[in-house]
Design a protein around this nucleic acid. Structure first.
Lengths: 118, 118
DNA sequence: ATGATATTTCGACTATTATGGAAACATGGA
DNA sequence: TCCATGTTTCCATAATAGTCGAAATATCAT
């Protein structure tokens, strides 16, 4: 991951298929999902899926890990956190503007991506 | 504004120039800024600026209001709020994952866009 | 009216992104 | 080794997005 700027992250998520992939991975949790399962779930042909997975990986929103002959992808929560933090800072100039997002424990409930921290 | 989905909002912000425009408008506050001033500030030629302003308006992230021969644009905070809320929901599945955004008053500090609510 | 200024629309062009079949590249199992 | 499977890369193509000069439109001032 080469510290992409906010616009790059936003653009990466600004595509229906990629956003769906990301959502699926968040939903899947730290376990992650194998690429082909994502393709099945979203009905994307292998080449197209690979293209989008590569894009999301490049900007650091997801991470893939080889697992025998599969590749298991999982969401990189930290990157998303940074993005949300950026938007929040940017939208509110420091003050919070999130009436809809009342949950605000500062818990560092860090999820480990399966096999992270090698 | 025709209820754009998250991907559309993300894509709109996923461009360096548009993100800069939006940031500028947030910084400017409820007053907003006149289009030409944005162009001066960011060094964008009129046609290009107009294109991006139209895009941001279309998805409801900004709003323009004619003011004699100028058009004064201001950020639509509500739309951004919704986007952040969506991402937060989506990133965290309900639980907060925002260690960096500790400010969390639920104040409905609603900013009125100059001349809003007509 | 005429001219100056602000903004958009038009139009032509360039650049970037997306799509997906087919071939190549693993990897695991018989 | 040979085949089946998962994934990527290659490639050609299609589709979309971005750029910006110039013309059009709007509004104000004189």
């Amino acid at each position: 991951m080469e510290t992409p700027n906010a616009a790059e992250l936003l653009a990466a998520l600004g595509h229906e298929s990629r956003l769906s992939v990301f959502r699926l991975l968040v939903e899947a949790g730290p376990e992650g999902i194998v690429a082909s399962a994502i393709g099945d779930r979203l009905g994307l042909p292998p080449a197209t899926l690979s293209f989008h997975l590569a894009h999301l990986s490049r900007v650091g929103l997801i991470r893939g890990q080889k697992e025998s002959r599969f590749i298991r992808y999982c969401a990189e929560y930290a990157t998303m956190d940074e993005l949300i933090a950026y938007l929040t800072r940017n939208c509110c100039q420091g003050a919070s503007c999130l009436p809809k997002t009342a949950t605000c424990d500062t818990i560092a409930k860090r999820r480990q991506c399966a096999g992270e921290g090698a």
